[in-house]
Design a protein around this nucleic acid. Structure first.
Lengths: 195, 195, 195, 195
DNA sequence: TATGAATGAGGCTTCATTCAT
DNA sequence: AATGAATGAAGCCTCATTCAT
């Protein structure tokens, strides 16, 4: 079985497994995604999957970490100190919308994961650290009396909620997202948290 | 059927199954809830469960319908024409918070169900009808320029989001809900949608 | 539940069960015919079926006895001493063909039953007695050197085979049975056994 | 795969499953043969059976195809152009008798299968092709006015019937098959179809 | 590393029969 | 006689994981 095509390197297999897993889970759900199907889809044999991951659950968790991290980083990288506070929030909001719109699989996965009762998110230290700039921005904004003095995660939820919602409807193809709507939606979210 | 003493009439079994199912699913997830466990927990034998429901999936769907309906009704019944628009919204918001806080199982179930990729909610006519007063309130409020002119469901999401979020944190026991916080959270949600 | 319509008498229920059973088994096979379906089809409740029959297997056996007996009697009643031997055989042959053609359910049932390995036909005394005139005819015909001296049941098989076969094809709608074909087929069967 | 010693290669398991299945079904019937018993008897674990066959029904069908094909081939290979027509028929007849006598399990299986109402034989192309020489012989014999001009399958039934019947009685141990009887029986069958 | 056959517990569902009424 | 709810063993099949190669 020697193919001319470049053999996948080590980490490629790992990546292939995760990618296949993500695609399958987003369409079929965790429990409707047997390892055998992951094997077929990823091109990595069942047995070998267990060489890269100790168990199915581990794949799920690793995937969650990876996606969540990616998402957080997109947000964090999307604003800069050059912007006014409101501009920063706007940037972040647009990034949330954009990321979710352009990552339907990841969106579905996150949603499922974060609503599974028996899979405790248990945000790893890693995620906390990555999200720090966001927390700092919020804390700072509260202190400067730009946004309301509410618990940070509530603020995030209020603020982010609209964008996530719109993205889901966009993916489900039950809405048309024009600039006007986006702007109006952002304003609503901003109104929610601004002082 | 002359016994005065409740001998667990017909519908009691049905109810027992649904109740057991709800409890188990909320703690273990759909797929981690085998029918055998439902049988044991509900006190209804495996075989007999299938006398009341055609399949596991049907139980899930019926349960969703029932809970969602209950939740919608709670909201709808919670406001009256005597109130100002803002008061109505406030009543609804508080009911959402209260319902979710006091119905952790139902909350978990709804959350899981509505995020399952392979179980399409497909809101039945029944639910639509029940929710009509809410839709009317929103439509009316938009027309009277009390709230923003945004898609109804986005408004609901923005508006409801804060209450649901707080309830979840309350259930997870990661927040203390005092009146002040509740009031502030409501204000934020109201700011999001009010014109 | 008092209907104006005449309530089925005792034996009517028995008959209803057997009739429903026959129809279902002929289309679905023994094991694909649950008692619950028999109940629904016959209009007799599950529990009550067991008032009339001790078990499912008993119904099968009774049904077999009844049908086989009916079939045998049709043959026996179909010839008389007024006829020549050949005429008698012809009459019987035509009756077999006719009975099978006009009793597709019974035919299917007999076929299934007689080929079930775990249901031993064990022809009851009753059946033997009923078939005696046939046996006598054959014995007599052998003695008079009209037909070949072969084991009785082989003769029956050879002789009957053609008619049964034609009837099955007729039922399956894969043949057109005109008089000419019938006559030719009879001749073939007669040739098989005649001396 | 360098071992010389037979270590039960891949296809051995497949064969083991089919063999066990055949034995069980012939003695207990399709529906009285649970997969668990097939597993135990064949020495292949339940789960692994499904690695070789998609379902129980598939095993049945494959088995039917295999056995029927084997049987047809035995007949087809049993006569040659060197023989007179009558000799050819005789050869075939004897082969049918012999095959059935020496293959009681297969005989029982074929009988059950071909009388199951819900399993349509649907003779595959493969079987048709294999049986072609037989059909040709019959067609030719009709043309040369050696046998009667009757539908091919009726001829087969008439002709084959006696041999099959005898074999069944032999297997059931309710007959003694000596040469004289065999010869007489063959003559009867031949008389049935010969012109 | 890599394969995929093998395992076997466990999942959902069916169904003959019994039981309470 | 009659009902149909109730039982629970058993059936078919799935699937995470391990094992032999």
């Amino acid at each position: 079985m020697k193919t001319r095509v470049a053999k996948k390197g080590k980490s490629d297999k790992r990546a292939a497994i995760m990618e296949a897993f993500l695609g399958l889970v987003s369409e079929r759900g965790f429990h409707n995604t047997p390892m055998s199907l992951v094997a077929k889809t990823s091109g990595v044999s069942t047995g070998n999957i267990y060489h890269y991951f100790p168990s199915k659950e581990d794949i799920i968790i690793e995937l969650y970490r990876k996606i969540k991290l990616e998402f957080i980083r997109a947000m964090v990288d999307g604003f800069s100190d050059d912007q006014t506070f409101r501009e920063r929030f706007r940037s972040i909001w647009l990034i949330v919308l954009e990321y979710r719109k352009s990552h339907p699989k990841e969106t579905s996965f996150l949603e499922q994961f974060e609503n599974s009762p028996y899979i405790t998110p248990s945000l790893s230290e890693e995620l906390m650290v990555a999200a720090k700039p966001l927390g700092d921005l919020l804390t700072q904004s509260i202190k400067e009396e730009i946004i309301k003095d509410l618990p940070i995660d509530l603020l995030v939820s209020l603020y982010t909620g609209g964008a996530v919602f719109l993205a889901k409807k966009f993916i489900a193809d039950t809405i048309v997202l024009d600039d006007e709507l986006i702007e109006a939606a952002f304003d609503a979210c901003w109104d929610a948290i601004k002082k």
